[in-house]
């Protein structure tokens, strides 16, 4: 019951979140994504992930290099940021979407930024 409910929530919201598929990211979206990724109170991605340009990055999560080949499917990338625990119960990655830490638009901005890495 619980699993099905959250899967339903995930698919509905994932559908909403990837509304921008197919459109090229604007420089403004990429810049917004970078700000979210590097701001402690928002994405705080560099606390755990190394990516070029990050200062004092951690190594709890995998280094984010050639991200397009790491996660070529944007929908899948969105799902990882939205609620990785649904895919991998062992993960320590916060559920940025499910737990309302980032909005769908913010997640998409982060994806646009990470796809430049």
């Amino acid at each position: 019951m619980n699993l099905r409910a959250s899967m339903l929530g995930l698919s509905l919201l994932a559908g909403l979140g990837v509304a921008g598929v197919g459109q090229a990211a604007t420089p403004a979206q990429i810049a917004a994504g970078q700000k979210i990724a590097e701001t402690t109170t928002l994405g705080n991605c560099d606390a755990c992930h190394m990516f070029t340009g990050a200062t004092e990055a951690g190594n709890v999560g995998p280094a984010l290099q050639n991200v397009k080949s790491m996660v070529p499917n944007r929908k899948e990338f969105y799902a990882i940021i939205y609620d990785e625990e649904a895919r991998n119960p062992q993960t320590v990655m916060p559920a940025f979407g499910k737990n309302h830490i980032l909005s769908p638009e913010q997640i998409n901005d982060v994806i646009d930024f990470m796809y430049t890495k």
């Binding site: 709890v60 320590v92 309302h100």
Partner: peptide, 24 residues
Amino acid sequence: GQLNFSCASCHVQEAGMHLRGNVL
């Protein structure tokens, strides 16, 4: 918490790794 961590997440599972510049 909103970030969904237990004490063990950081101090067992990720012990010895770096969170930013700090060792867990």
